[in-house]
Design a protein around this nucleic acid. Structure first.
Length: 475
RNA sequence: GCGCCCUUCGUCUAUCGGUUAGGACGACAGCCUUUCACGUUGUAAAGACGGGUUCGACUCCCGUAGGGCGCACCA
């Protein structure tokens, strides 16, 4: 057991066979928060021992996803594949110690074995053919695999920070292959060797690894190595309760970026999935790091709820300072339809206009996608295209309101929201009309829509000439 | 089939034997209001089921049901 004074070393170890999905992102977040909060380090290891399915593109996507989420790793990412020789060395060591043996069964035989067991409704396990058989019986020309000699009696205990004490009967764990016939190590061996060699003290990963942990525990024990502290985090399911896995259309974090979520919102949301700190719902990343403890992790799976994520995202959008939000927004634009075009039009004057409009805009946006569409009126060219509701508003009565307002606004000494509002209000009072009778036609003419930020703010942001021009266009 | 795990409002969760079972999202209603939002006030909404243990069970034990994960020369 590592002593409490040792700084923890955690690791995130994705396999580069796809994008960084949401479950992986949360696992990374937990590893990161735990390490950060306890003066430790988080390592990154790319589990690329499967040469067939691992790709550089996937590795790049995972690293980009982590970076976008703001989860940094302390040491350069390690490729598991690059440590193959070391893994094979440990396999030989196990062999020499009598803790492993050569198995000459062909893949076909193994498949047959599995199918037979399944047909007979028996547990699907390797039958141990070569466990005690003399290697002299080895068929000629067959390249053997190395299997781990798993204890057949007793039980393997996992003391887990989230799951508690989990006991697995050893009879249910068969002799797993640790070295393939081509000499490549398999996952369970590589993971143990790497975690040990890299000095990992705390393993935090999904519960889907629980049985692997039992097997890995046996390997640690066979090697006489200390078993790291274990924490198995429950899984994240889809909104319908069905599983949310790569195979079932789970989204990579870059999809969440494209949907207009802020990294801090996603972090906050993810942290509250399977982990809690009393009644705290909205908290900063600093607070998360300060509060995060393994004991706060629950045991049951949770469903992904977009409505709650949106709510959180809206909160973060509203509370992000305008200049930071603009930066976020501009970094987000390249990832969506029509975004690059909008981005190309954001020159310095437009940037200034956007910044000025942002306070009104961000109140009304739950995602950056919404922010983009709400900001569309700033980019619109005269004469504006009106949507149907705007057209309805600009009927004869509406046009009349604009005609009445135009000279009034044009005469306003200062083109500033408060004074423009006063002018329109005075006019409404004088004519005994409700303010809305003027505000809605103005909104339609200025934005081409029937909803927008406060219309006097819109006037101010658009400026005198553009505003008056848009009004004249619709009179 | 075998092993392991899970089960509190629709959802995320608090509770660590004694609470009117709390909060948040969502829903609904009211207020605010130039639209839409924001904000704000309020309402409805939960311990899967059945047995124990106990003075007392959401909390501990057993069983049932439902769900999840795992059982590859994938990771």
């Amino acid at each position: 057991m590592p002593s409490a004074i040792t700084a923890p070393v955690t690791r995130f170890a994705p396999s580069p066979t796809g994008y960084l999905h949401i479950g992986g992102a949360r696992t990374a977040l937990f590893n990161w928060a735990f390490a950060k909060g306890h003066g430790g380090t988080m390592l990154l290891r790319i589990e690329d021992t499967d040469r067939e399915r691992s790709t550089d593109a996937a590795t790049a996507a995972i690293l980009e996803g982590l970076t976008w989420l703001g989860l940094t790793w302390d040491v350069e990412a390690v490729s598991q594949h690059s440590r193959m020789a070391r893994h094979a060395e440990v396999a030989s060591e196990l062999l020499a110690k009598g803790q492993a043996y050569y198995c000459y069964c062909s893949p076909e035989e193994l498949t047959a074995m599995r199918e037979k067991a399944e047909a007979e409704k028996r547990p699907i396990r390797y039958d141990g053919t070569w466990r005690n058989r003399d290697p002299k019986d080895a068929p000629a020309g067959v390249k053997p695999v190395i299997r781990f000699k798993s204890p057949q009696e007793g039980e393997t205990v996992i003391n887990d920070h989230a799951q508690g004490r989990v006991v697995i009967p050893n009879k249910d764990l068969d002799d797993l292959i640790i070295l393939r016939s081509d000499g490549n190590p398999t996952y369970n061996l590589s993971v143990v060797v790497d975690d040990h060699d890299m000095g990992v003290t705390h393993i935090i990963r999904g519960v889907d690894h629980l049985t692997n942990t039992a097997r890995q525990t046996q390997i640690y024990q066979a090697m006489g190595w200390p078993v790291p502290e274990m924490t198995h985090v429950p899984l994240i399911h889809g909104p319908d309760g069905a599983k949310l896995s790569k195979r079932h259309g789970a989204l990579g974090v870059e999809a969440y970026r494209a949907m207009g979520y802020l990294p801090e919102a996603l972090r906050n949301y993810l942290a509250r999935l399977g982990w809690s700190h009393g009644d705290d719902e909205i908290f900063s990343t600093e607070e998360l790091v300060r509060w995060f403890e393994l004991d706060g992790i629950g045991k049951s799976a949770s469903r992904f709820d977009f409505a709650k994520l949106e709510n959180l995202n809206g909160h973060y959008i509203r509370h992000t300072p305008d200049t930071d939000l603009l930066k976020h927004f501009m970094e987000f634009l390249p990832y969506i339809d029509g975004g690059p075009e909008m981005l190309a039009r954001i020159d310095e004057p437009m940037k200034a206009m956007l910044t000025k409009a942002l306070p009104g805009l961000k109140e009304r946006a739950k995602t950056l996608v919404e922010l983009k569409s709400n900001a569309a009126y700033l980019f619109a060219q005269r004469p504006l295209k009106l949507d149907d509701r705007a057209k309805t508003i600009l009927n004869d009565e509406g046009k009349a309101a604009l005609k009445a307002l135009h000279p009034l606004l044009a005469a306003s000494p200062a083109w500033q929201a408060a004074s423009l509002e006063q002018a329109v209000k005075d006019h409404a009072d004088a004519t005994g009309t409700k303010l809305g009778k003027f505000a809605q036609p103005l909104r339609a003419a200025l934005t081409g829509t029937f909803t927008s930020p406060g219309i006097f703010d819109v006037l101010e942001v658009l400026g005198r000439d553009e505003s008056l021009g848009r009004i004249v266009d619709q009179m």
